[in-house]
Design a protein around this nucleic acid. Sequence first.
DNA 1: ACCCGCCTAGGACAATCGCCCTAAACGCAA
DNA 2: TTGCGTTTAGGGCGATTGTCCTAGGCGGGT
Lengths: 192, 192
Amino acid sequence: MAIATRDRIIKTADILFYQQGFEATSFADIALAVGISRGNFYHHFKTKDDILDGVINHRLANTEQMLDRWEIEGDDPADRIRSFIHILIVNGEKIRKFGCPVGTLSSELAKLNHAAQSDAASLFTLFRSWLSRQFERLGFAGRSDFLAMHILGRSQGVAALANAFNDDVFLRSEVELMCLWLDEQIASVRKY
Amino acid sequence: MAIATRDRIIKTADILFYQQGFEATSFADIALAVGISRGNFYHHFKTKDDILDGVINHRLANTEQMLDRWEIEGDDPADRIRSFIHILIVNGEKIRKFGCPVGTLSSELAKLNHAAQSDAASLFTLFRSWLSRQFERLGFAGRSDFLAMHILGRSQGVAALANAFNDDVFLRSEVELMCLWLDEQIASVRKY
DNA sequence: ACCCGCCTAGGACAATCGCCCTAAACGCAA
DNA sequence: TTGCGTTTAGGGCGATTGTCCTAGGCGGGT
C-alpha cells in the first residue's frame, strides 16, 4: 500500500532527524531503517526537503492532536499548562539524549539558512498560541502571550541544559520551579 | 609564520562552526575562508576533530578571559551576574541569527554522538562555576550552584526562542525579567 | 487474457566529503 | 653558499552524498 509506505518513511525520518539531526541523516539512513530501497524512497519523496516538509507537517499534526486532547481531558487551564510543563519529565530520557525536538530542529535549520526554518518555528507557534489561550482563560488578558513565551523559553532552557549535562535532577527541580511560578502568577491575578 | 596561520584557521573555523554548524562546515569551507590551500590546512590539523578541539579550547580560553575581566572590573558580584545576563543583548544580533554558540554546539555534538560533546559542555561548566562563585559571594551558600544553573538555563531558553522567532523585543524583556529575578533573590537572602 | 498504472528494486550519475600524498618554496643556521 | 626543517600548494584517494533513471513485479479494470 502506497500510503502506508509513505507514512513509514515519514515516521522513521521523524525519529532519525530528531536523534541525528536533519543534515546528518542521509537518504540511505532512512531507506535502511525503513527497510526499502533508495529507488522506492525516491518514488515517494523527490528531494530531501520534501521529506523535511513531510516530517514537519507530521509533527504539526501530532502536536495539534496532543494539545486538543489536553483541551478535552480537563477543564482547568492551569492543569493544561502543567501538562505542558510536564512534557519535560514525560519525555525526560529522550530530552537528555537528544534535546527538545522542536528547539533543536529550529536551531539547526536556522544555521543551515534553510527555507523550512519558518515552518519549524511554526511548531513553536502552535505551543505559543495554545499556551496563550490558556493564560487568557485564567484572566491574564494582554499579558497572556508574554507569559506563554516566557514559559516556552524556560522549557527550552531546561531542555538545553538537561541535554548538555545529562542531568535529570536539574530537569525535575526546574519543572517544580516552573509550576511554582505558575501558582504565583495565578495567585497574583486572582487578587483583582 | 606557523602560529599565525594556525590561529587564523582556528578563528575562522570558530566563526564558521558557529554560523553553519560543525557538520555542515567542510575542510574546503574553512580553507577557502582563510585563503589557504587544503594541503596547508592538513599540515596544521590532521582531522576535523582536531580542529574542533582547537576551536573548543579557543572558546574556553576566550570565555575564561572574559570572566576574569568581569571579575576585575567590578567588585559587586551582582553586577557581574548582570554582565552575564546582558550578553544576550550585547550579542543579540548574532544570537537571533545563529543562537547561543555554546548551546547550539553542545546540542549538535550530542546528536552526532561526538566524543567532544563533554568538552563542549565544559564551556557551560565554565559559566556555571563562575556564576556559582558570584552567588556564593552574595551569601547564597549551598543554593549557589542551583541558582547558577537556573540562570544559565533561562539564558539558553531566551537565546533559543529569540533565534527561532528572530524576536528582539522578547529577548530584551526576558533580560529585564532575569534582572528583576536576580534583585528578588538578593533581597530575600539579605533578610537573614 | 490482456493491459495500464502504481509500486519497488537497484544501479549510475556528478559532486563533495574527510583524508593523504608529493613536491616546491621558504627561512634560518652553519 | 649549502643544507635542513618548516610551511605551502595542489592533486588524488575511496567513500558517501543527493538525485535520477530504467526495468521488473504486482494488482485491478476492461
